[in-house]
Design a protein around this nucleic acid. Structure first.
Length: 120
RNA sequence: CGAGUCGGUCGGACGGUCGCGUGAGGUGGUCCGCCACCUCCCGAGGAAGGUCCGGACUCCGAAGAGCAGGGUGGUGGGCAACGCCCACCCACGGUGACGUGCGGGACAGUGCCACAGAGAACAGACCGCCAGCGGCCCUGGCGCCCACGGGCGGCAGGGUGCGGGCAAGGCUGAAACGGUGGUGUAAGAGACCACCAGCGCCCCGGGUGACCGGGACGGCUAGGUAAACCCCACCCGGAGCAAGACCAAGAGGCCCCCGUCACGGCGGGGGCUGCGCCGGUGCCCGAGGACUGCUCGUCCGAGCCGGCGGGUAGGUCGCCAGAGCCCACCGGCAACGGUGGGCCUAGACAGAUGGCCGUCCGGGGCUCGCGCCCCGACAGAAUCCGGCCUACAGACCGGCUCGUCCG
RNA sequence: GCUCCCGUAGCCCAACCGGCAGAGGCAGACGGCUUAAACCCGUCCCAGUGUGGGUUCGAACCCCACCGGGAGCA
C-alpha cells in the first residue's frame, strides 16, 4: 500500500492537480500529473491520490480497484520526480481488468502524461 | 431407498513474501504539538446491505394538558422495547409433516355496491300463479224462436280489461332476505311441522385467556365492504453522532476592572455573544419567540422580517467492555430467564482490513489414465445494539411426514 | 443520517372518488390529395399499467414487500 507520507488527503490538492495537471488516459483509467516547483515546498515530497467513482461498480469492486491501483502506484513511486502530484481516476472498465493489465495501463498513461509535459 | 417438510451450523483452509490501520513496548530525533524506525497483539459480515420498525445515547425547556395527527390490531407469555420472538386459538390450503393470514367492531353513524337484472339494502312485482268482478270477442255443446238465411238466452273453456291476493317457479349477477321433504291453501308463504345449516341468549363442564365440548330455549334469517370514512382498545414530544461536548482562533457588539486624560476618548486585561451592508417594522399600550400543526397554560423577551453579498480543509472527545460472546447446570412445552466459570472481540476520517505466489479443499472442462486448464456465491463496518426484509455458489448436522420394498 | 416524489405504447403524457382493462399527441405503416413531395385528410398498428403478493364481485387506482430512477435537508 501507499505509505502515509505520499497520500494526498487534501480536497483542494485533488482539485488543483486535476485542473492544472497533464491528463492522459487509457480505457480503464485516467491520470492527472502535475509537477510543482520543489523550491516552493517546505519539504520535497510526492503525493498521490486515487479516485474511484460510483460508475466503477458497487463498494466491493471499487475497493478492489482502488487497492490494486495504490499498490501499483506504490511500486512506481521511485520513478516519479520530487514535487509530483498524481491523481489516478478509475473508469468503469477497470473493474474487470486484471492486476497486470492495470499495471500496463498505468505505465502507458503515466508515460504519455510525462512526455506531453516534457514537450510543453 | 425415493419424495417432501421444518430447523440449525459453516460459508474456503494453511503457508511464504511485500505492504496498510488502531493499540502496547522499545530506539532515535524534536520547534515538546509530534515525527521516523523496529518488535508484538488485534484488524469486516451473516447479511456489514435496504433503511422498514424498536431502543440506548445526545441536544432541544423541566419534557406540560387537551385536540388534531401517526402507528398497532385473535389470546397468553418473552423482551430494555418493538410492527420482533415463542406457545396456543380460529379460518383457509395440503393425504400428512407443515404452511399462509393487517385475524377487533358492519344492530353507533355515514358512504359505496358499476354492468346485467323485475328487484341491490327500511326489499321488490317484469314474466308468472290464484280466485273475484265487468263488458266485449272467439270456440264448444244445450234450451227456445224462426220467414230455414239465422237469431236470442244461459252454461263451460280461452282471450282481453279492472281492482285484489301470493311470492313458490323463471331470468341476471360476486351477492337476491335460509336448504330439503311434508302439512296446508283458491294459489301460496316458516303460516305450521321434521331434519339440516346459520343467528341470538341462557345453563353445565374444561381453559389464565382467545376459545372448545354438551344441553335447553327463542325468533324463524340477519347481504358485502372498515388494506372506504369511522368507532373501540393500546402505544407515540421533536430532532438526530454532520446529535452533541470541550479546547484554539474570530471582524464586530455589550458589560466589568485597571491606567491615563483636554472627560469626547485612548491603552491594557477579563467575561458573554458571534459575519457585513441595505430596506421595512418594533422597543413600559410591548414586536417577536419557545414548548415543533391548533387551543389552553406556562415562560423568554429587545429585537424581528425581507433582500443582497461574504464565509463554510482547525484540533480533541463522543468512539467502542457491550441489554457482549462461549461453556456447563437449573427452571420453563418454547421464546427466554437464573446461577457459576471462562474470554476481550475493528474503530477509519481522501477513509486500514490488501497485492502477489505456492500447497490443499470444493466445483467444472479435456483426457483411457498420469495430468493440464479455468473458476471460488452474495457482498465491504462509519455512534452502538435488538429485530424485520432482501441477496447468496456450495457443504454439513438434526427432527418430522408420505410412499415403496425387506425383516 | 434523515425526508419526499415518480414508474402507463418506441417517445411525451391522460384516465375525476375502484367499474366496459385504458384517452390524446409525436413517431411508424397504408391509402387519398400532388407531376412529385411537404402540409393536410382518412384508416390501421402500437400497452395488459416497473415486479411479486394481498384486500375486493372487480385494482393503473387501496395495502404490503421488492426493483429502478430522481429531488431535497442536516
Amino acid at each position: 500500500m501507499l505509505p502515509p507520507a505520499v497520500r494526498m488527503r487534501d480536497g483542494r490538492e485533488f482539485g488543483t492537480t486535476r485542473r492544472r495537471g497533464r491528463r492522459a488516459g487509457t480505457t480503464s483509467l485516467v491520470v492527472h500529473l502535475n509537477v510543482v516547483d520543489v523550491t516552493d515546498l517546505d519539504v520535497p515530497s510526492r503525493e498521490v491520490g486515487v479516485v474511484t467513482g460510483k460508475s466503477v461498480g458497487p463498494a466491493v469492486t471499487r475497493n478492489r480497484v482502488k487497492r490494486r491501483l495504490r499498490h501499483l502506484v506504490a511500486d512506481r513511486l521511485d520513478t516519479l520526480p520530487m514535487g509530483t502530484r498524481l491523481v489516478v481516476r478509475a473508469l468503469p472498465p477497470s473493474a474487470t481488468r486484471s492486476f497486470d493489465d492495470l499495471g500496463r495501463d498505468l505505465d502507458r498513461a503515466i508515460d504519455k502524461a510525462t512526455r506531453t509535459g516534457a514537450r510543453a
